[in-house]
Design a protein around this nucleic acid. Sequence first.
DNA 1: AAATAATGTTCGTCATTATCAAACAAAAGT
DNA 2: ACTTTTGTTTGATAATGACGAACATTATTT
Lengths: 259, 259
Amino acid sequence: MTVQSVQRALTILTLFSHRRPVLGISELSRLMDLPKGTVHGLTRTLVDHGFLNQDEQTRKYRLGLKIHELGIVLAGTLELNQKAAGPCHQLSRRTGQLSRIGIWDGGSVVITLNTHPNPMPVLPHQVGPRIHAYCSGIGKAILAFLDDKTVRQYLSRTKMTAFTPLTITVKKKLIEDLKTIRQQGYATDREEAVQGLGCIGAPIFDRQGRVAGAISLSGPVNQILGEQTGVLAGEVLSTAAEISRLLGYFPAIMETVEP
Amino acid sequence: MTVQSVQRALTILTLFSHRRPVLGISELSRLMDLPKGTVHGLTRTLVDHGFLNQDEQTRKYRLGLKIHELGIVLAGTLELNQKAAGPCHQLSRRTGQLSRIGIWDGGSVVITLNTHPNPMPVLPHQVGPRIHAYCSGIGKAILAFLDDKTVRQYLSRTKMTAFTPLTITVKKKLIEDLKTIRQQGYATDREEAVQGLGCIGAPIFDRQGRVAGAISLSGPVNQILGEQTGVLAGEVLSTAAEISRLLGYFPAIMETVEP
DNA sequence: AAATAATGTTCGTCATTATCAAACAAAAGT
DNA sequence: ACTTTTGTTTGATAATGACGAACATTATTT
């Protein structure tokens, strides 16, 4: 049903990470518990297609540029990303804070856009490209507006570990939080993932009225979740609404036509 | 030697493009001239690992977010990209033009960074993420400083087709151009790839003194290749030098120690 | 300098494994 | 209502990819 060698090849790719950018055959063969010969055949094929690069000197492997190409294709393809880019930039420029777009993908959130007002050379991916839903503004904004079935699945499958003293680790607490988020329309994250980091997140809806993702504004807690919260939340919400509109979502029409 | 099923799976991935973001089983099976059942097994495996996403409604496939993740890992990994980000941003802000970073990869150039001064939401990838070396400022800047063997290989394997009336299509002409580039230290591209587009490119060297890639500044021809060319070229060259220095390249040391 | 260890790579055999073609259900188009 | 096209399943066949040992190189240690 599922092809073994392909499975193994893809696993090899996923073994490369920010922390382990370069790997050798022996290391891979150890990690995957497979004979070196087998791994060699797979890496060879991956190299042939540009998914891996082999250093001519060290003979070790790192991710190939083909992946970069595909990543570009994907990013340009993702409708949300395309439509959100402009508003997201404007939001971060108006507020002077980091604004991000995240997409729900099978139990966690993938950050697909990252804009900072003062051209910061290398954005510190503080929480990495894939982040937990239960402890982020983006994640909670999505969870709150996701269908019940998916949320229940998520809750049953997810282990909520604490990253800071303020991380929510009790499911009941989280469910309450989601209710509040639904009422006020936006989510807040007060140092739940990273110490000192505050965040406001709002959901983005697609043509069918389903959550497509979320947008967030984050920065130092006192700058985000203080007196200005009301203003900032308004900014985030209107930006989210604008993006939803670009995606073809018109709540007024939905409400009057649907029932 | 090279694994067939993996080869096929990777080919499937590369069939997705900006112009063809979503594909179905039948379409794939036609494109690859393989039975539908075979293709199904492969896509299934790709979906399982997040490299493809299957739309629950249409049952068709598009690239999966795993690729985005790997792309991030790769981008963060590429030393050049990391080091170049800051200087590249500054260059584009100072000059008000588009600045890009490209890396040589087996016969062509992959654009890994793209910075435009006025926060343009979606950068028009005018020449695509992978561009020809012989008709771009970045590409020629790299070629000019690449080792002879590689250049000869490139010349023999590459068909130079014209994109504009000014595209260089004769190898001898190109070789002359490369000599000029070596002398003045930077490359120019006057509407060789895109009508109306001018470009200045300068090479970037790594620790070992080899070309790691190049940086370019591009915009309307008259704004790039006119009276200001001297000033702009200076800017590009100093930026390139700065990045090379960040990569650990110190020409003074190289020259005195090497021979 | 010698010896050892660890690396990436090659090879031939065996049976596991993935391919194939045909048939299936479901949906889209006519 | 019919035809065509879609994605999916199946089961038999043999081609294919996995294996493990031996190879040549390079690092590391003695």
